[in-house]
Design a binder for these strands. Structure first.
Lengths: 125, 125
DNA sequence: ATATTTGCAAACGCTTTGCAAAATT
DNA sequence: AATTTTGCAAAGCGTTTGCAAATAT
């Protein structure tokens, strides 16, 4: 466990904005100025594979990272680009339907799109 | 409407394998050998924006294209990589829950992962 | 002393784009 | 004749990787 990895994990802790790798890089750079972007990518990958953080795939955009690792869904605002956590129970019933059709379902993910409360009423773009 | 665009659309018609842009390119190339990959990308983009085809975002992989444009979900086999259509009703109720939370939901998408019927029982990788 | 990780830069895969030539309207 | 689209090649973006030096075990 190097200082870099610790700093990356700490940067994510308590951050609910779902930052991209580049955002994490700039945040950590303030503390460790000589850190490289490659190191950030490497550690985010490792940490998500070991289950310490969550990697969120965004349609048409860089991945985002989340300290909150329990399965949950996301809402992506098409106006401001912000990614919100969605308070919605895990839809196990959907998996069950696929199981009946012969699929072995390991997981599913749901992304919502639209406008967030803050952006409603504003001209889009 | 050029021959290229017509050929691209025809290549997709009746194809249920959700091909990538590159797969479409190779398929159309047999008919129009001098077609370029850029043209295929440009037309797939146009056709999906005009609603003639569907662009499917795949986590960690190239986009795939579908002649079937009604909203439907997909199952991605982690073993063979094949993308299946999922026979599942549109989950409007999920949108309604987000609406109650103040979001203006324009759409949602669900991706399932696991092993398809064909790959079950085989050693993974 | 050994194994792991870093910084750097180059390469990667997928997609988009600038431009002059060609095809379409 | 005016507009759109093409082929080509270069560039774009996000991400991964090879390698020698530095750090951690």
């Amino acid at each position: 466990m190097t200082g870099q990895r610790r700093a990356i994990l700490k940067a994510l802790e308590g951050d609910t904005t779902h930052p991209t790798a580049d955002m994490v890089y700039h945040k950590v750079k303030k503390e460790i100025p000589h850190i490289s972007l490659g190191t950030v990518y490497r550690n985010l990958k490792m940490l998500s594979e070991s289950g310490h953080i969550l990697e969120i795939e965004i349609a048409d955009g860089p991945n985002r990272y989340d300290y909150r690792t329990e399965q949950h869904y996301h809402f992506h605002c098409d106006h401001c680009g912000f990614v919100y956590d969605v308070n919605l129970a895990y839809q196990q019933a959907l998996n069950d339907e696929l199981t009946q059709a012969g699929f072995l379902v390991s997981r599913h993910d749901i992304q919502f799109h639209g406008q967030c409360p803050k952006c409603q009423g504003q001209l889009s773009h």
